[in-house]
Amino acid sequence: MQITETQGNRSSVEPSVLHKGRFTFRVERNETKVSTSALASSVQTHYETFYLVGKVFGVPMNIRVIKHRLKSEWKNLQGEVSIDHIGRDWYKVEFNYEADVLFVLENRP
């Protein structure tokens, strides 16, 4: 599984790598990549379909503030959303419906 996100025009000479459980986060040349190879195919497919990973930039926020803000922004979703802190201002967001994932990807934040 690999998710890539552009992070503005910030450039980095050396890649930053964080290992958290079964995930590896690598920030290099304005991109953040999240990868894992320790999952069964069916679990990996579930992750790719129903999970997003995001990072908070700037002033760190309490997870309750993040959840409240996203709940307000995503009030039109079909199902519930679960948000878990996975380290260093990274958050895993799990959706119940694939349509909700697509809505968030298209409409942000």
Rank of each mutant, 00 (worst) to 15 (best):
Q2V: 06
Q2T: 05
T4P: 04
T6A: 12
S11E: 15
S12M: 05
S12I: 04
E14Y: 11
E14S: 13
E14Q: 10
V17I: 15
L18A: 05
L18V: 13
G21V: 05
V27M: 06
E28K: 15
R29I: 01
R29H: 13
N30Y: 03
E31P: 00
T32I: 15
T32M: 15
K33N: 08
K33H: 14
V34Y: 02
V34W: 03
T36N: 07
T36R: 02
S37P: 00
A38S: 15
L39K: 07
L39G: 11
L39P: 08
A40H: 10
A40M: 08
A40D: 14
S41Q: 08
S42I: 02
V43W: 01
Q44E: 12
Q44C: 04
H46I: 00
Y47R: 03
Y47W: 02
Y51E: 07
L52H: 03
G54H: 01
K55T: 05
G58Y: 11
M61S: 13
I63Y: 00
V65G: 05
I66D: 11
I66F: 06
K67W: 01
R69Q: 13
K71F: 09
W74G: 11
W74N: 13
K75H: 14
K75Q: 07
K75F: 06
N76A: 12
L77Q: 06
L77R: 05
Q78D: 09
G79K: 06
E80P: 01
H85T: 07
H85C: 14
D89L: 04
K92T: 01
V93P: 02
Y97S: 10
E98Q: 10
E98I: 05
E98Y: 10
E98R: 10
V101L: 06
L102M: 11
L102W: 05
F103W: 12
F103T: 13
V104D: 04
V104Y: 05
L105I: 10
R108D: 05
